[in-house]
Design a protein around this nucleic acid. Structure first.
Length: 298
DNA sequence: AAAAGACCCAACCGCCAGCAG
DNA sequence: ACTGCTGGCGGTTGGGTCTTT
């Protein structure tokens, strides 16, 4: 036997909300709050709606300070970066964009941003899509053009031959106001050892407020190959895991500058010369095999 | 001008985790 | 420990609108 429905479906209205319904719901919540019970709310507010429907309407439309309309470039970048890092965790992504709802971002991603990143025009002929993707891929993978590093939408991903955690770190620079992602954001994808690593990463993020962080891997806090100089690298995201499975040595917390084995120019050169794959050898622990790919893998 | 196709987005659906009894 | 309920979430849908033919 299935679960009992949350409401009497025969007696609830469905479909678009009327202005009168909006007004009733808004007025009630502003006056009494939700009372922590959405199921009972519609009856109290005099609405013939399912509680879930009321909740959705409030959260996505009626709630104060909801931002509607065009997404800014900064918002685009934040969405891209987070999507590359944590995937379709829309509620988490929304929490980094004040005024935006998860539904809004999800719709925006599915209808516009994804296409924008792939360089697909708004009304492509079907046969041209594949060709366009191929072109994009070619551009990302083979061109050593400097434009590669000024394209705000390029994503770089790293994977290990023996993946342990995905992702173990995500660093992003949202304007000057960097907001570290909490370990809870990755529940289900982390282990105790990666949690320890994450704590170190969080510290590093805070310390590099005005610059981007690139981490390739490592089995100790101070051994991650990373770049944190003042460079316009805030559009790049790379994550991966080390080939080492033993995280027990996690205890050092070397300053950022000291644990960088590679400079920006070196990384740039490696990426330009790579054939979709490269191996980074960290002076401390060995290294990690990393790959990068174009956005069409999303 | 009309039909067809594409796009957009509000809303729904079903699953899952957490909690209370 | 088990069960049922609720809130929260992500995926999907459907219908209105816009664009193209």
């Amino acid at each position: 036997m299935g679960r009992a429905p949350c409401c009497d479906k025969a007696n609830v209205k469905k479909g678009p909300w009327s202005a009168e319904e909006d007004s009733k719901l808004k007025g009630f919540i502003e006056k009494y709050g939700t009372g922590g019970n959405w199921i009972a709310l519609p009856h109290k507010a005099g609405l013939k709606r399912c509680g879930k429907s009321c909740r959705l309407r409030w959260l996505n439309y009626l709630r104060p300070n909801i931002k509607h309309g065009e997404f800014s470039d900064a918002e685009d970048r934040t969405i891209c970066t987070l999507f590359a890092s944590i995937g379709s965790r829309w509620s988490i992504i929304a929490s980094q964009l004040p005024g935006r709802t998860d539904n809004d971002i999800k719709n925006y991603w599915n209808t516009k941003l994804k296409k924008k990143l792939l360089g697909i025009s708004s009304s492509p002929k079907k046969s041209s899509i594949h060709h366009q993707e191929q072109q994009n891929q070619q551009l990302l993978f083979s061109s050593p053009s400097p434009s590669l590093f000024s394209n705000p939408y390029i994503n770089i991903n790293a994977t290990s031959t023996t993946p342990l955690h995905k992702p173990f770190l995500s660093g992003f620079n949202h304007q000057a106001n960097l907001v570290p992602i909490s370990p809870e954001a990755f529940s289900g994808s982390s282990t105790s050892s990666s949690s320890s690593l994450f704590q170190a990463s969080q510290y590093q993020l805070k310390e590099s407020r005005s610059s981007a962080v690139l981490v390739f891997g490592g089995d100790q806090a101070g051994s991650c190959t990373q770049i944190s100089q003042n460079m316009s690298f805030d559009n790049f995201m790379l994550y991966g895991s080390t080939g080492f499975q033993d995280f027990s040595g996690l205890q050092s917390s070397a300053p950022l500058e000291e644990c960088s084995s590679y400079g920006f120019d070196e990384i740039k050169q490696i990426l330009m010369n790579s054939n979709n794959e490269f191996f980074l050898e960290d002076q401390t622990v060995g290294g990690c095999k990393a790959q990068w790919r174009s956005m069409d893998t999303f």
